[in-house]
Design a protein around this nucleic acid. Structure first.
Length: 523
RNA sequence: GGUGGGGUAGCCAAGCGGUUAGGCAUCGGUUUGCAAAACCGACAUACGUGGGUUCAAAUCCCAUCCUCACCUCCA
C-alpha cells in the first residue's frame, strides 16, 4: 500500500515519495514557550507523532525536527510581568511543555532547535535576502528594521491561495510608513530594549517566520519532504516561510505541507484569546494520558474535533466557580470515553494472555475453520492498521481495527470453550490464536502510540488517580467488600446488594468471580 | 468581500461512484443468588436542502442553507 498524504499546497491527496529514497525529513512548527501547552497543541503534536511512528514502522528513516520559538514579543511581555529574564522564562516553559507532550506519548523529536541559539543563521539568511533584493532595511524610532518585500516573490500566496491584492484590501492600516507594502513582514526588528542581539542592522530581535526557515535549512537542508503544523499557521506563517526560503534557495522549500484541524470547544476553536483553552496538565489531572490520546485519534487529523467540557456543578445545578472566579471545568466527556476504551483494550489483553497461558502464537487448522474471521485478524490486524495510516493517517479507521482485534480476543475466549468442549486440540489451538491476536494487537497499536504501558502499570496508575479524584481510600473499599462477602456467605443477599449499591454510587464497580471479588473505579 | 474546514442514524465518527467502518447511549438475550465484566442481537438501507449526470451517488456537477476558521498573534 503506497503512502498518500493530503498536501495543502496542491489541495490534493498525493502519493508520497521521499526526496531521498528510504529517508524522510520532517519539520513541525513547535511552540512559542511562554505558558503551558494546551489541548490544541496536544492534538497537532499527537498527529505528527503518529506520522513519525508510522513512517518508521514502514521502515523509513525519519529525521524529525520540532522547533522551539523561545524569542518572541509574547515571551518578553510575560517575562516582564513575572519579573523574569525572557530566556529563563522561555527555557523553563520549553522544558515544561516538552514534559507535557512527552506525557501524552509524543516521542521526542530528533532535533529541537531554539531561536536563541540560531541568531547567526537567521542573520545570515536575512543578509542573503537583502542581497537578492527580496528584503530591505527601514529606519525606525527604535533603530533599523528589515522587511521581506512580498511583491518581490512572484509565488506569494501559493500555499494559502491568497492574492496579494485581495489581502491588501483587507489589510490593516499600519502606523507609520516604514514598509514599502502593507503586507511586507519583519525579518528583523530593531530594538532599544534590553533583550536583543547585535546584528549588521544594530541591536534587535528576529521577526516571527524567519527562524523556521533558517533552522529547517540548517538541519534538513534547503529542500525537504514534509512541513507540518496547525491549520492556523497556513497564513501568514507558512506562506511567509515559503517566501523567505524560496527567495533564498529556490523552490520547493517543502514538498508536502500537512496541516492539522482545530480542537474546538463548543464548536469554537480552542485558543488563548477566546479564553476557552484547557491545558494538557488540566486534562491529565482528570484523565489518563493514553485515554486522552485515544480521544485525539478518534477523529481524522484534518477535520475538527470537539473537546467537550462539562462544568463542575453544585447541588443546585449551578456551575461552580473557582477561587479565580472562573467556572471550574474538570469534566471531559470525550476524553472519559477514550479512557473507557483504553480500559477495554487493556482488559482484553489481560484476558487473552490469561487464557493463552503462555501458549506460543500460532494459527491452527481447527481454530481457523471455527473462527475464520479471528484467524484472519490475527494475520492481518497489524497490517490493516498500517494500511489505514498509509491513507493520509486515517486514525479513526485504525482505531476501529484495533477495537476489532480486542473484541476478537474476547469473542474467542467466550466461544472457544463451548466450541471445543470435547476437543483438547481445539482448545490448545484457541490458546495459540489468543496469543497471536494479542501480538497482532500490540503491533496494531504501536504506530498509534497507544497501550505503551504494561496492563499492571496502567491499571495501577489509573486506580491511584481515580481514587484520588473521588477522594476514596482503597482500604475503605476493601472493608466494605469484606462485609459484603460475609453477608453473602450468610446468604443475606439484601445486605450484600445494599453494600454493592453503596459502592456503585461511588463509581466503584464490583466483579464477583470464581476466585473472589475484584473491584475497579469507573472513569 | 477573499480563502479554507465541517454538516452522515439519539450522540461521536469513518467512508468520498456499486458487499449499510467502528464506538457510545438505549432496549432485548447468554451468563450470574442478583449484578458487573464479556459475548450475541436490535436500534441501522442514515448521509443539510433543491436540482442534475449515471444502469448505479453519502460519494461527481450546479445552486443553496447552516456552522467554524483564516485574512492581526494563535497548534
Amino acid at each position: 500500500m503506497p503512502l498518500r498524504f493530503h498536501n495543502t499546497r496542491t489541495q490534493k491527496l498525493e502519493l508520497f515519495t521521499p526526496k531521498t529514497e528510504g529517508e524522510v525529513r520532517l519539520y513541525l512548527c513547535g511552540l512559542t514557550t511562554y505558558d503551558h501547552a494546551h489541548a490544541g497543541h496536544a492534538r497537532t503534536n499527537t498527529t505528527f507523532d503518529v506520522l513519525v511512528r508510522h513512517l518508521r514502522n514502514r521502515g523509513l528513516k525519519v529525521s524529525y525536527v520540532r522547533n522551539v520559538t523561545d524569542v518572541d514579543d509574547k515571551i518578553l511581555k510575560r517575562a516582564t510581568e513575572l519579573g523574569e529574564e525572557p530566556l529563563a522564562l522561555s527555557a523553563r516553559m520549553a522544558e515544561l511543555c516538552d514534559g507535557e507532550l512527552a506525557a501524552i506519548g509524543c516521542a521526542k523529536p530528533d532535533h529541537e532547535p531554539r531561536v536563541s541559539t540560531h541568531i547567526p543563521e537567521i542573520v545570515a539568511l536575512i543578509e542573503t535576502l537583502i542581497e537578492k533584493g527580496s528584503a530591505y532595511v527601514a529606519e525606525t524610532a527604535n533603530g533599523k528594521d528589515v522587511y521581506f518585500h512580498v511583491r518581490s516573490f512572484a509565488d506569494y500566496g501559493k500555499l494559502s491561495k491568497r492574492k496579494i491584492d485581495d489581502l491588501q484590501a483587507g489589510a490593516r492600516v499600519e502606523t507609520g510608513e516604514i514598509k514599502k507594502d502593507p503586507l511586507d513582514f519583519a525579518l528583523w526588528k530593531g530594538s532599544s530594549e534590553a533583550w536583543g542581539w547585535d546584528s549588521p542592522w544594530g541591536k534587535g530581535r528576529p521577526g516571527w517566520h524567519i527562524e523556521c526557515s533558517a533552522m529547517a535549512h540548517k538541519i534538513l537542508g534547503a529542500h525537504f519532504d514534509i512541513h507540518g503544523g496547525g491549520m492556523d499557521l497556513i497564513f501568514p506563517h507558512h506562506e511567509n516561510e515559503i517566501a523567505q526560503s524560496e527567495a533564498a534557495w529556490g523552490p520547493e522549500f517543502a514538498n508536502v505541507w500537512m496541516h492539522g484541524g482545530f480542537l474546538d470547544v463548543d464548536g469554537e476553536k480552542m485558543s488563548k484569546s477566546l479564553g476557552n483553552f484547557v491545558t494538557i496538565a488540566q486534562v491529565l489531572d482528570r484523565n489518563d494520558a493514553e485515554g486522552f490520546r485515544y480521544f485525539l485519534l478518534g477523529a481524522h487529523y484534518r477535520g475538527p474535533l470537539n473537546f467537550d467540557v462539562d462544568f463542575t456543578r453544585d447541588e443546585t445545578g449551578e456551575v461552580r466557580k473557582g477561587a479565580d472566579g472562573h467556572a471550574e471545568r474538570t469534566w471531559f466527556p470525550g476524553v472519559d470515553e477514550g479512557e473507557r476504551r483504553t480500559d477495554y483494550l487493556y482488559t482484553a489483553i489481560v484476558s487473552a494472555e490469561a487464557f493463552a497461558e503462555g501458549a506460543s502464537p500460532a494459527i491452527g487448522a481447527k481454530v481457523s475453520k471455527a473462527f475464520p474471521a479471528l484467524a484472519a485478524l490475527a494475520k492481518s490486524g497489524a497490517e490493516d492498521v498500517a494500511v489505514a495510516l498509509d491513507d493520509d493517517l486515517n486514525t479513526p479507521k485504525a482505531l476501529a481495527v484495533v477495537g476489532e482485534i480486542a473484541k476478537g480476543m474476547n469473542e474467542l475466549i467466550t466461544k472457544a470453550q463451548k466450541q471445543f468442549k470435547k476437543e483438547p486440540e481445539g482448545i490448545a489451538e484457541a490458546k495459540a490464536l489468543a496469543a497471536a491476536l494479542s501480538i497482532a494487537l500490540r503491533g496494531a497499536v504501536a504506530p498509534l502510540g497507544l497501550l505503551q504501558a504494561s496492563p499492571e502499570d496502567y491499571f495501577a496508575r489509573t486506580k491511584v488517580r481515580r481514587l484520588a479524584l473521588r477522594k476514596l481510600e482503597a482500604a475503605t473499599i476493601d472493608g466494605k467488600i469484606e462485609a459484603r462477602l460475609a453477608a453473602r456467605a450468610a446468604k443475606d443477599f439484601a445486605q450484600s446488594d445494599l453494600i454493592r449499591d453503596e459502592l456503585a454510587a461511588l463509581s466503584v464497580e464490583l466483579q464477583d468471580g470464581p476466585t473472589g471479588t475484584t473491584w475497579r473505579i469507573l472513569v
